[in-house]
Design a protein around this nucleic acid. Sequence first.
RNA 1: CGGGGCGUAGCACAGUCCGGUUAGUGUACCUGGUUUGGGACCAGGGGGUCGCAGGUUCGAAUCCUGCCGCCCCGACCA
Length: 491
Amino acid sequence: MSKGLPSRSEDYSLWYNELVKRAGLAENSPVRGCMVIKPYGFAIWEKMQQTLDKMFKDTGHSNAYFPLFIPKSFFSKEADHVEGFAKECAVVTHYRLKNDEENGGVTVDPEAKLEEELIVRPTSETVIWDSYKNWIQSYRDLPLLINQWANVVRWEMRTRLFLRTAEFLWQEGHTAHATKDEAIKETEQMLEVYGDFVENFMAVPVIKGTKTENERFAGAVETYCIEAMMQDGRALQAGTSHFLGQNFAKAFDVKFATKEGKEEFVWGTSWGVSTRLMGALIMAHSDDQGLVLPPNLAPTQVVIVPIYKRDEELANISEAAKEIIDGLKAKGISVQFDDRDTHKPGWKFAEYELKGVPVRIAIGPRDMENGTVEVARRDTKEKQTVNRDAVVDHIGSLLDVMQKSIFEKAATFRNENTHTVDTYEEFKEILETRPGFIYAHWDGTSETEEKIKTETKATIRCIPLNSSPEEGKCIYSGKPSKQRVLFAKAY
RNA sequence: CGGGGCGUAGCACAGUCCGGUUAGUGUACCUGGUUUGGGACCAGGGGGUCGCAGGUUCGAAUCCUGCCGCCCCGACCA
C-alpha cells in the first residue's frame, strides 16, 4: 500500500478513483465498463441491502426473481420505454460456440442463431408485467407488491466505478394497484423510504422532487427522485420512484375485475436504487485520508489496535481488549481486534483511516498502567483518553453522535453551496465559480431546459416537492413561472 | 465514432528524442536481525515474452509499418 491519496482539491475525480481502489472497494475488470466489487466494498453494499430489504418488507413487499433475459418482442410493447433504453441494450444472438479451426480458440457457431434475440435486462418492467398479466385477475389479487434484487446491464459509453458501470447491482420494486390514487401513494411512500434510508443510514441529506419530462423514466407518467450533493458541488440522483399510470398494464394487457364486476387496467409503480449509492456514500463524506463511513453502514464499527513491545504486554492488552469486545458485542456493535504482528500500529492507524472505520481504540503499556484506552473518531480525527470501565458506554453513544454529526456536516456543506438566483448572468457566474445547487425560475418548457443544458451543462435535477409556490420569471426566457426548480451539474 | 495521451516487475514510473555491457528506480513481496504511542531500519533475495506481429540493422524497450488494449476530452446516459 503506497502512501497518500491525491487530494480532493487538486483532482476530485482522481481522488475518487484512487480511493475506491485503495480502500479495497472495487476495481476495474477485464471486461470493459464492468467492475469487480471487492469484499470490503461488497460488505458495505450488503449492509445497504439488509437495511433496505427490511424497510421493503416492513412496507408489505415480497422478494421474487425474474429472468436476466428479455425476449426482444416484449421490449417493444411500450413505445416510450423501448425508445429510452434501445441505445444501451446488450443483445444475445447465439447460444453456442464451436472450435475455431482457422484461428484456434473458440468462435460463435453461426448455426446456433437464436430465433428470437434476447435482451439482457436494462430494467425488468417488461418481463415482470408479462407475468403480472397471469397473476392478476381480480381486485382480490391487488395490490401486488414485489421487489427483486438483481443485476442489470446498460451499455454505457463512459464508465466510472460505482457511479456508472455497464453492469450494476440494484433492487427494483414493481407494484400493481387497483386505483390511481393508491399507486401514487405507493410511489410517494417508496420515495419516503429511500429518503429515510439515505439520510438516516447513509447520512446524506437529500432533496425530494419530481423529474421534468426530459429526465423522466422511459414509460413513466411521473418520476420522483431524491438528489444529493457531492463534495464537489455536483448533484447525484440517489434513488427514483416511478408512477407508471396504466402504461405497462395497457402494453401487457393487465386487467382486473372490480368489485362491481367491471374490467379495468391496473395502475403500476416501479422504484429502484443501485450500487451507485456506494458512489454517493464515498463522495459525500470521505476526506484526503480515505473513506469516512457513517456508523450505521460500516461493516466494522470499532477496531482495537494493541501497542506493545513484549509478548506478555500483548497478553495483558488482549485480556483488557477481550472485555471491551464482549461489552461492545453485547450492545450489537461490530468490533475487530487487530493483533497482527506483521504490521506496526502506525501502519494500522493509516490503514483503518483509509478504510473509514468509525472508531479506533488504541491500548498500550501506558494505558494498561492508567486503566485507560485511547479512543479516536474517524470523522473529526479527535482523540481522547477514556477510562477502560467507561469505554463501552462511551462508544455506544459516540457512534450515535458520529452518525448525526456526519449528516450535519454534509447538510451544512449542502446548504452553504445552495444558491438562489433570479438572473441568467448570476446563474452562469455561480456555475463557473462555486458550483452547487441553484434554485431558479423556469418556464416549464423542454426547449428552455435544453438550451440551458447546452450552454451551461447544468440540468434541472428536480422540481422540489416541499417548496412553496412563488411567482417569478424564467431566468432564461423571462416567461412567467410559478415555482423555483433545482438546477445543478449532475453525475 | 471524432480529438489527445499512454502501454517497461503486483502497483507507480524512468530509460525511447540521439539504437550498443547483464533493462533500472520507488513501492509491494520473501529471508534474517534490530524495532513497535502515527505508514520503522539495516542486510540479503526473488520477480520482466519492455502490449502484439512484421520490418530495418552486426545489434532494437529505443527507428519504420500494421494491429490490439487502456486512460482523458467530446457526442449518449442512472
